[in-house]
Design a protein around this nucleic acid. Structure first.
Length: 486
DNA sequence: TTTTGAGTTGTTCGA
DNA sequence: GTCGAACAACTCAAA
């Protein structure tokens, strides 16, 4: 009698059943499949999952666990060093193979390499796959063989070669319909024992913008295709309208993969007119920004800590940490900035347009180091992703790829008036300003006294006075940038 | 090797 | 109120 071959599927940022190559191919082997999640935050180095991310992870795992149970093989959850846990699960189940989908953060590439070598030395079949990207970073390069550093050529090159073997971007694979479980189930820790949930209930409003789990991810994608993507090009800039996809946390945790998005967009465009086609292309272009971010992180692994343009290493940051704290708490005196920072704190998410505004304010108005902003986002965003976070902050600070021209300094007042014209977004998150009329809601410091009185606003008491004068701050930022010139 | 065109997301000023 | 130009120089990517 031959024993069917057991495969351990090590799940990481690929918390889904559909389009999961490691799971799909493990199931195709025909033997028992052991889905395993290992909680080992220490192995992620200084970029351990932040508090908001942990909340999301807890709920995502809870849902995934139910779904694996229905498929026939329960999700095993363990806390500990990845290699030791894998070896112990292999021993307990008699598995002969370990499959996983790749991650691209520098610390984890190193960790996975060691794990793979050790498991191979144990005589196991070890295979890793791509679940997270349309284009893995090493499959595309400039004609000089170097990594891309500008988005548009990167994107064009990806699109131009999307159908060429061997770099061909793959189609999604199916979810397994059922799984055989091993005759001896390995022991599992409980999800609660990982301690991912906050002790205080600060996450109550988190489900407002996105809900963890593969089913919610698929539903969100369909909703976005039905009522968002067509208007995405201009509506995505309206934090008061919520015209964005809100898929970012799902993408980060791999509850949904970019291949599934691309396929859905193709179907959507195919079934419609030129407008649909244009909308689908526009959204897919944004998905390629995520690809670009991973490309950069892989090829420039120092960038989470160091600027890509090294002259920025000598930028004269001010490091006024009292002001940092005011920014974090949403008490800068600039309503759109404060609304964004409070939305982040309360909901674990912030509209992308507002992310740019608050980031520009931190870096260019307060002259605080971009790492401080990156750190705060890392801890507070449910979609915190090392590649995207690094690209975004370096872009804003002007020290990264495709850097903004030196003169592009966001004006928080005009940005507010342009993208939150009636002030609804500010009213939602800065209730002490709610009674101000639209004309003054983005510039309370300039409002006539009787307007403020009527709205019950006392500057410096019920709402802070502006932390800095934007016009002066802008000049200071430009002067600081001048010092970098060669 | 050198040249050339281009580069996500803006603001301000003056006509 | 609206519009267009100016705001540096640099680096990337391809020809």
């Amino acid at each position: 009698m031959t024993t069917p071959l057991t495969t351990v599927v090590w799940l990481r940022l690929d918390l889904r059943l559909a389009d999961n190559p490691a799971l799909h191919l493990a199931a195709e082997r025909g033997g028992p499949v052991v889905p395993l999640f290992i909680w080992s935050p220490e192995e992620e180095g200084v970029w351990q999952p932040g508090a908001a991310t942990r909340w999301w992870l807890h709920h995502s795992l809870a849902e995934l666990s139910e779904r694996f149970a229905k498929l026939g093989s329960p999700l095993i959850i363990r806390r500990g060093a990845a290699l030791e846990v894998l070896q112990s699960v292999v021993r307990a189940t008699g598995a002969d193979a370990v499959y996983w989908n790749r991650r691209y953060e520098p610390e984890l590439i190193a960790r996975d390499k060691l794990v793979k070598a050790a498991l191979v030395a144990d005589g196991l079949q070890v295979q890793s796959f791509n679940s997270a990207l349309l284009r893995e970073p090493w499959t595309i390069a400039t004609k000089q063989g170097k990594p891309y550093q500008v988005f548009t050529p990167f994107w064009r090159a990806c699109v131009a070669s999307a159908n060429e073997a061997p770099e061909r971007e793959q189609e999604p694979v199916d979810a397994p319909r059922q799984l055989a479980s091993p005759s001896h189930l390995p022991k599992s820790d409980t999800l609660t024992s990982l301690g991912l949930l906050p002790k205080l209930s600060w996450a109550d409003e988190f489900p407002k913008f996105a809900r963890p789990g593969e089913l919610h991810a698929l539903k969100r994608l369909q909703e976005f295709l039905a009522d968002g993507v067509l208007e995405y090009d201009h509506e995505r800039d309206r934090p008061d309208h919520l015209g964005v996809s809100r898929l970012s946390p799902h993408l980060h945790f791999g509850e949904l993969g970019p291949r599934q998005i691309r396929e859905a967009l193709q179907l959507y465009a195919h079934a419609g007119d030129a407008r649909r086609k244009k909308a689908a292309e526009g959204f897919l272009r944004q998905i390629y920004w995520r690809e670009f971010a991973h490309h950069l992180l892989y090829h420039f692994p120092h960038t989470p800590e160091q600027p890509l343009r090294d002259e920025f290493a000598r930028f004269p940051w001010l490091k006024n940490y009292k002001q940092l704290s005011a920014w974090q708490q949403g008490r800068t005196g600039y309503p759109i900035v404060d609304a964004g920072m409070r939305q982040l704190w309360r909901t674990g998410w912030m509209h992308n347009r507002v992310r740019m505004i608050v980031a520009s304010f931190l870096v260019k108005d307060l002259l605080l180091p971009w790492h401080e902003g990156a750190r705060w986002f890392w801890d507070t965003l449910v979609d915190a992703d090392l590649a995207n976070n690094t690209l975004g902050w370096q872009w804003t600070a002007g020290c990264g790829a495709d850097a903004a021209p030196y003169f592009r300094v966001f004006n928080p007042t005009s940005q507010g008036e342009k993208f939150d014209p009636v002030g609804d977004y500010v009213r939602r998150y800065v209730p002490e300003l709610a009674k101000l009329p639209a004309k003054w809601i983005h510039r309370p410091a300039e409002a006539p006294r009787e307007v403020l009185e009527a709205a019950g606003v006392t500057l410096g008491e019920t709402y802070p006075s502006p932390l800095v004068d934007h016009a002066e701050a802008r000049e200071a930022a430009l002067a600081a940038l001048q010092t970098l010139r060669k």
